[in-house]
């Protein structure tokens, strides 16, 4: 069998890929390292699945926070009044 011509001289392990996944996603890896990660990911189902669910996790965080449940429609009146009174200061 002939050697894979696309195989980089160093192929990172799953541990290396998942430890530095943030740098891969943020585009912080140097080009050679990024190609090594691409090679690993193109051949490792586990890491590919991990990458996809990692990205879905980030999207879910943002989406869940932007949906209802944490934001009231308005600031409570007493809080508005308290701020205005404090800024107004004591009146003689």
């Amino acid at each position: 069998m002939s050697a894979d011509p696309t195989r980089p001289s160093h192929v990172p392990t799953c541990e290396e890929v998942l430890t530095f996944l943030w740098a891969y996603l943020d585009g912080e890896l140097e080009e050679t390292k990024r190609q090594e990660f691409d090679y690993h990911l193109s051949r490792c189902e586990s890491c590919t699945a991990y990458l996809e669910t990692y990205k879905t996790t980030i999207a879910l965080e943002r989406a869940a926070a932007s949906h209802e449940g944490t934001a009231p429609d308005e600031l409570p009146d007493e809080l508005v009044e308290a701020v205005l009174a404090a800024v107004r200061g004591p009146r003689s």
Binding site: C14, E15, E45, A49, Y50, A59, A63, A64
Partner: peptide, 25 residues
């Protein structure tokens, strides 16, 4: 994630979540 001595994952998250974040949320 946990890894064996050879650097492979101990667990295999081979199952995807089958739905996009847009659908899940």
């Amino acid at each position: 994630p946990r890894f064996r001595d050879d650097g492979h994952q101990v667990e295999h998250p081979s199952l995807d979540w089958h739905a996009s974040a847009d659908v899940l949320v």
